[in-house]
């Protein structure tokens, strides 16, 4: 149990950290590619038009060579999305009663069948494909370049700042949790699932204390260089 949890957390941290470094695609085409990728993501999420699906796929495939050093992380991310979508859609597969194909289709029942395989696959494909254009673009160029571009737009600076903070904090927190667990593990000599459960459960307290301390220090650092009431506020 602990091994699987650790593996998942480390992979999740790696996937996010891969975004926070630079990709091989430069900053220059971003003002064009960023809105395009967001439009494609929106189209796949909200319509059933296969052309938009194909366009999203083509866009993502074009971005792939630029994301080459991080293809493994990108594959993991896509796999996570597919697995989570499949888990959520599992009841539909079994009951075959409804098909949640997207926001526009939310309340439209599909023709009943004993196994709603097409509905299941449709949902999983949609959930996996919808974020791919923006995700591959971010992997191809790196979040810092995307955020830097967004920082130049006054009204997006706050959002970009908050997203950047999350991307810095999530991997740090995940790694930190398991370094706390490892420190306990080294001095615990019991065996079995009970030991693993105890290790994880007792590490949570330390984790919360450490994260609280870190967030307080970070808050101070932001406050120290913020001259207005709200961080990321922009001079008018």
């Amino acid at each position: 149990m602990l091994g699987v949890a650790r593996r998942l957390a480390v992979e999740a941290a790696r996937v996010i950290e891969a975004i926070t470094t630079f990709g091989s695609l430069g900053k220059r085409p971003l003002p064009l590619l960023l809105p395009l990728s967001l439009t494609l993501t929106g189209l796949v999420s909200l319509t059933q038009n296969l052309y938009s699906w194909a366009a999203a796929l083509v866009f993502s495939l074009v971005m792939l060579p630029y994301a080459r050093p991080r293809l493994r992380e990108l594959a993991y991310l896509t796999l996570y999305l597919a697995v989570f979508a499949a888990v959520i859609e599992l009841p539909v597969l079994i009951t075959g009663q409804s098909r949640v194909a997207g926001l526009s289709q939310l309340y439209r029942p599909a023709p009943p069948s004993s196994w709603n395989i097409d509905g299941f696959l449709f949902f999983v494909a949609r959930i996996t494909l919808a974020p791919l254009p923006i995700v591959t673009l971010v992997y191809a160029t790196g979040w810092p370049r995307v955020a830097s571009t967004l920082y130049r737009i006054k009204h997006l600076r706050r959002v970009a700042g908050m997203l950047t903070l999350s991307l810095l904090l999530i991997p740090r927190s995940l790694r930190n949790l398991f370094s706390i667990v490892a420190a306990r593990e080294a001095r615990t000599f019991e065996e079995g699932y009970m030991r693993e459960w105890k290790l994880l459960a007792t590490a949570v307290g330390d984790f919360i204390a450490d994260s609280t301390g870190y967030s307080k220090r970070l808050e101070m650092a932001i406050k120290a260089r913020t001259f207005t009431e709200y961080p990321f506020e922009v001079r008018e």
């Binding site: 810092p144 220090r217 101070m220 922009v234 001079r235």
Partner: peptide, 27 residues
């Protein structure tokens, strides 16, 4: 201006440029 003992907690922007520009951009 204050420099923290641990610089890890002081950096919260995507690039070095943005980090240094964080305060001047408000002014």
């Amino acid at each position: 201006g204050i420099l923290f003992q641990n610089p890890e907690t002081m950096l919260f922007n995507p690039t070095v440029y943005d980090e240094i520009a964080y305060a001047p951009r408000q002014l």
